[in-house]
Every structure is written in structure tokens, then in C-alpha cells.
């Protein structure tokens, strides 16, 4: 068992290692390194930060300091779908707070909780995404941009997204079940390399 865990760790750090190497182990590339790691894991696991510090030869506190300074970085796992409600000036004066309330209500989130328990969704309020001409704006995972939003229109978008996420979750569960069967028959199960790792 211990060996298995070691293997998982080894594979996880292999990925981190390749990212660090790609950036020539330069301290000046620390932000880019953390960005790539976050793209991989959807957050910055603490042990990975310590690993990066060792690899770059700098104190873990420095890496931790950078990771907590920039709003882009998260030390907590984020949801699969990140819903960003823009609250820049233009969106604010066009009542973006109503959209924020709606997202919270639909996803069951509040002041102290910005990610759903099943790690399906995260709500973020951003200062400005620079699409002020389309205010108020909501984005999903940065690639879907919804402009000139009303609470009614956003409700439709969210309902579709929630349905999509549920369907995906079900497929994943089924996948897992079918994956487990051969494992019980004594065949080795392919270990996750840390991709999609949620909270190790």
C-alpha cells in the first residue's frame, strides 16, 4: 500500500517537475509555473508549493507569499465550472449584484462558501473583464462570455449548465463503476496521475 501511495506521489510530482523544467527552474518564472500548475490541478495543493520551493531553491514562504498575493491563485479546490460575475464599474451600475444573488441562490452558495460541495461549480466575482460595452457580463470557464445579462436570461444559462454538469457526473460515476470491476478481478487499476485530483 505504501508503495502505491509513493507511486501516486511520484507521478504527481513528475507533472510538476516537467512544468518547473519547462520554465528553466527560474525564480522569475514562479508566477508562470504556478499558473500552469493551477491549470493542471484547478488549485494549488500545499505540498506542491513546498515541492516547487525546493525545486527552485527558495524558501516555501516565498512561494506561499506569491500564491496568496495574486487573486488568480487558489489554495482551495475549485469547481469544474467557474462562473465569474463581473462587478466592474460598468457592470455594477447596470446592477450586476442581482446576477450574483441569482447564482448564489441557484447553486446554494453564500458569503462563506463559493464552491459547491460536489466541486461542480465555483462562483467568483471579478473586478473587470474588459467587456464593459456588454455590461453586465457573466463568464463560464473564461471561454463562454454572456453579455447584457438579465436575471431571467442567466437563470436559463445556469439551469442548462447545472443539467449538463449532473449528466457528466452520472457518466463519470458509471465510468468509475465499470473501471472498478476489472480491478476486483485482480487486474491492476491505472492510478490517477493527479490530474483532476481533488483534495489529496
Amino acid at each position: 500500500m505504501g508503495k502505491e501511495i509513493q507511486q501516486v506521489f511520484q507521478r504527481k510530482f513528475d507533472k510538476v517537475n516537467s512544468i518547473v523544467d519547462k520554465h528553466e527552474r527560474k525564480v522569475s518564472n514562479l508566477i508562470a509555473i504556478l499558473q500552469e500548475i493551477q491549470a493542471e490541478y484547478r488549485y494549488l495543493p500545499e505540498e506542491v508549493l513546498t515541492y516547487v520551493a525546493t525545486a527552485l531553491g527558495i524558501p516555501p514562504a516565498t512561494v506561499y507569499g506569491v500564491a496568496t498575493f495574486y487573486t488568480q491563485f487558489s489554495m482551495k479546490p475549485k469547481g469544474k465550472y467557474i462562473v465569474k460575475v463581473c462587478d466592474g464599474t460598468a457592470c455594477h451600475v447596470r446592477h450586476s449584484e442581482k446576477l450574483r444573488y441569482l447564482v448564489r441562490e441557484k447553486l446554494g452558495l453564500d458569503d462563506s462558501k463559493d464552491t459547491t460541495d460536489d466541486l461542480g461549480f465555483t462562483l467568483e466575482t471579478v473586478s473587470c473583464i474588459g467587456a464593459c460595452g456588454l455590461a453586465p457580463v457573466v463568464t463560464v470557464n473564461d471561454d463562454e462570455v454572456y453579455g447584457q445579462m438579465t436575471p431571467e436570461a442567466l437563470a436559463i444559462v445556469l439551469d442548462q449548465l447545472i443539467a449538463k454538469e449532473r449528466a457528466e457526473q452520472q457518466t463519470e460515476e458509471q465510468q468509475e463503476k465499470s473501471d472498478q470491476r476489472p480491478a476486483r478481478n485482480g487486474q491492476a487499476k491505472e492510478l490517477d496521475d493527479g490530474k483532476g485530483c481533488q483534495g489529496c
Partner: peptide
């Protein structure tokens, strides 16, 4: 190209320099 990581203060030139050097953008 250096991508910022979401800190408004990095628009200030000395903070921006810190950020390019890989440090906290102060």
C-alpha cells in the same frame, strides 16, 4: 510575454517589475 495573475497594484511600475521578477507585486 508575462501574464499577470490578478493584482490591480501591478499596474504601478515598481510593482509590475516585482511581478515580472516572480515576486509579490508590491
Amino acid at each position: 510575454i508575462k501574464e499577470g495573475a490578478g493584482a490591480f497594484v501591478c499596474g504601478e511600475e515598481t510593482a509590475l517589475i516585482s511581478s515580472i521578477e516572480g515576486r509579490r507585486g508590491m
